[in-house]
Simulated scan of single mutants.
Amino acid sequence: MSSNEELVRQKDEADGKVGDLQRELEGERTKAVEEKGRLQRELEAERVQAVAEKEILKKELKAEKAKAASERAALQKELDEERAKAASKRVAYPDLCVTAVEQFKGSTEFQTAVDAAVARNLAGQESGGTGPSRTTAGGWVDEVGEQYGSGFFLGCGEYLEVVEEESEDLTRQIETHHYLTRLNQDFIQCGVYDTDDSHSRLIGVEYIITDRIFETLPPDEQKLWHCHAYEIKSGLWVNPQVPELVLKPELENLTKAYGKFWCTWQVDRGKFPLGPPSLMMSPQPMNLGKVRPHLVEKRDWKYRISVDDLKMSRVEIEEPEWINPQADYWKQHGKGFVVLIEPIEMKKMAPFS
């Protein structure tokens, strides 16, 4: 075979290989175009699906907004009804008081008590005294109450029920019943019992002072006291069977007052008053200071009252402009106080020897 024939043969083989490569390349191009088309169709389908899902989500969101608006409207209507109901009750309080007075004013004992109270008031003014306060339930109401007995006017500045908490363990919450004695316009002392029935046990004593007196106490002493503002505003402080209208002037004063309560008998821990006394604190709307709901529900059921109604009736009672931060010390510092019993050497010399 001549060299020319060899070259022709090699050229034909090369041309054949090039043709094969071109056909293979064309096939790959066709496949690529088809794949591209398929991917574009899938992308378009996904876009269509995404648009459809977006529309569905828009409709669901719109429906949820409409539902929420409807629920808000229903809640607002219910709130307005409750407010109207509370307002109606507040308006009715004067009628309740008038009815109560009308019921008892015809009795000889009541008239005698009123006459005696007025006579003492006039005598006090003539002798230079101030007489009973006109702004508190501890004024003429207490005067009449002393004469008439503990029945009709028992609650008017004389008795209250509230939940107290132990300083060293705020989770220990107890129902307490205070029987108040006003020593003067700045100072009240309370015998505290575990119930209000004939089998009640004396479990401690609480002293209540005005903010004016509290501000004169040493800082270390102030740490042992608590403010009554939250107890009163939240409806936890209650004088059973006494209309809020009668109590309001007294409560307005007591929101600014401070108390120190020593519990000498932990009746939930033993049948006898054992160990040192415990310092008690008032409930607060934070952390462990919150009162357990079942205690409030139990009280409301017992006295046929509503903590929500009490809150509503006390909305207009103003918060104190200043609450000394030393009071309710645990709120700022997270520390309570406990009494420890330690033996010490006795004085062996009598003062008269």
Rank of each mutant, 00 (worst) to 15 (best):
K67Y: 05
K67V: 05
K67A: 06
K67D: 06
S70M: 02
S70R: 04
S70D: 05
E71K: 05
E71D: 05
E71M: 07
R72M: 08
A73C: 03
A73R: 11
A73F: 05
A74G: 03
L75F: 01
L75N: 00
L75E: 03
Q76P: 02
K77G: 01
E78L: 08
L79R: 07
L79D: 07
D80L: 11
D80S: 09
D80F: 06
D80H: 08
E81W: 02
E81V: 04
E81H: 05
E82I: 09
R83E: 06
A84K: 12
A84W: 08
A84L: 09
A84Y: 06
K85D: 05
K85N: 04
K85S: 07
A86K: 03
A86L: 07
A86I: 09
S88A: 11
K89P: 00
K89F: 04
K89H: 10
R90F: 00
R90T: 00
R90Q: 01
A92I: 10
A92D: 13
A92G: 11
Y93C: 00
Y93M: 04
P94Y: 02
P94M: 03
D95V: 11
D95F: 11
D95S: 13
D95P: 04
L96N: 03
L96H: 04
C97T: 07
C97L: 12
C97S: 09
V98Y: 07
V98P: 01
V98D: 05
V98L: 13
V101Q: 06
V101D: 10
E102R: 14
E102V: 03
E102A: 07
E102Y: 02
Q103P: 06
Q103K: 14
Q103S: 13
Q103M: 12
F104N: 12
K105H: 13
K105G: 03
G106A: 03
G106R: 13
G106V: 06
G106P: 04
S107R: 08
S107F: 02
E109T: 10
E109H: 06
E109D: 15
F110Q: 00
F110C: 01
F110L: 12
F110S: 01
F110P: 00
Q111G: 02
Q111F: 09
Q111I: 05
T112F: 04
T112L: 13
T112E: 15
A113M: 00
A113Q: 00
A113K: 00
D115M: 12
A116V: 10
A116L: 13
A116T: 14
A117E: 00
V118H: 14
V118T: 12
V118A: 10
V118D: 10
V118N: 13
R120G: 03
R120L: 08
R120H: 10
N121H: 15
L122T: 15
A123K: 15
A123S: 14
G124H: 10
G124Y: 09
G124L: 04
E126S: 14
E126F: 12
S127W: 02
G128A: 09
G129A: 11
T130C: 09
T130H: 12
T130N: 12
G131S: 09
G131T: 08
G131V: 12
P132C: 08
P132S: 08
S133R: 09
S133T: 15
S133P: 07
S133V: 11
R134M: 03
T135Q: 07
T135D: 15
T135K: 11
T136K: 07
T136A: 13
